[in-house]
Simulated assay, not measured.
Amino acid sequence: MLAALDLDEVFVPKTKSSLPRFFKYLNNTPGRLIYLSVSLALGWHSYLSFNVSGRSYTRFASHYDPYSPIYSDRERAQIMVSDLCVLSVYYALYRLVLGQPHIGQHGTGAAALTIRRSRIGSRGALATVDRDFGSVLDWVFHDVTDSHVVHHLFPMIPHYHAREATEAVRPVLGEYYRFDGTPVWRAVWREAKECVYVEAEGEKRKGVYWYKNEL
């Protein structure tokens, strides 16, 4: 599977040299359990709020900031409206004394292949994989997991047309369409174990990186 090394918006792959020094102590079963627990409970919100694991920008970036470098000028009013809606929902949940963690995860793969900026093109948009979370969770997540490939290709398609669009593009993409039928929790553990950092393949295919796990 192809992925953009430095232009992906979230879950940007790290090289071995950029891993935090303490990460070697997490490259074991107890460490992965701690990492996954924190990541699944807080990772998505940390990304939205503080751009944790997100693409590098020249200044602070947050999905809740209308003037964040993530957005264009024409999108700023929409972010303000979105912020008001989010605050309204949080207030309603507070009043109901109800909350739950959002445990979403962007798709990668143990055999994931990564390309640098000069080689991205349309291949970068295919840098993900569809996963079936089951009919209930697919509905809860608005089909963002089982129709994520088409979301990368056409992000403006509303979620209620995502499945229909996926069925339309699958025969067109052919071998470039990726679906992983591995049970979700097994896939999460596999990626935490095997997709630790990326490393260059060599001069024969300059700019190509593979996921590794040896520290």
Results as ranks from 00 to 15, higher is better:
22 F>K: 05
33 L>Y: 12
215 L>K: 03
212 K>C: 13
55 R>G: 06
211 Y>N: 06
125 A>H: 08
79 I>E: 05
138 D>F: 00
154 F>S: 14
17 S>L: 08
193 K>L: 11
98 L>E: 14
159 H>W: 15
13 P>E: 08
117 R>Q: 15
154 F>D: 10
98 L>Q: 12
83 D>V: 10
44 W>P: 05
99 G>I: 05
80 M>W: 04
136 V>C: 03
137 L>M: 13
91 Y>F: 13
176 Y>V: 09
153 L>N: 09
160 Y>Q: 14
207 G>P: 07
110 A>M: 07
141 F>Y: 15
96 L>M: 06
39 S>C: 08
1 M>W: 08
60 F>Q: 01
28 N>S: 14
116 R>G: 11
66 P>E: 11
171 P>C: 05
151 H>K: 09
103 I>R: 02
162 A>L: 12
167 E>G: 07
214 E>I: 04
201 E>F: 11
149 V>E: 00
121 G>N: 06
144 V>C: 08
111 A>T: 10
112 A>E: 11
118 S>N: 09
155 P>A: 13
22 F>I: 15
156 M>R: 13
79 I>F: 00
142 H>I: 10
103 I>V: 11
19 L>F: 01
134 G>I: 02
188 V>F: 09
194 E>Q: 04
144 V>G: 02
187 A>F: 05
56 S>Q: 14
37 S>F: 13
75 E>C: 06
206 K>A: 15
155 P>Q: 14
85 C>N: 10
181 G>A: 15
106 H>M: 01
135 S>I: 03
101 P>F: 06
110 A>I: 10
167 E>S: 10
164 E>P: 07
16 K>Y: 14
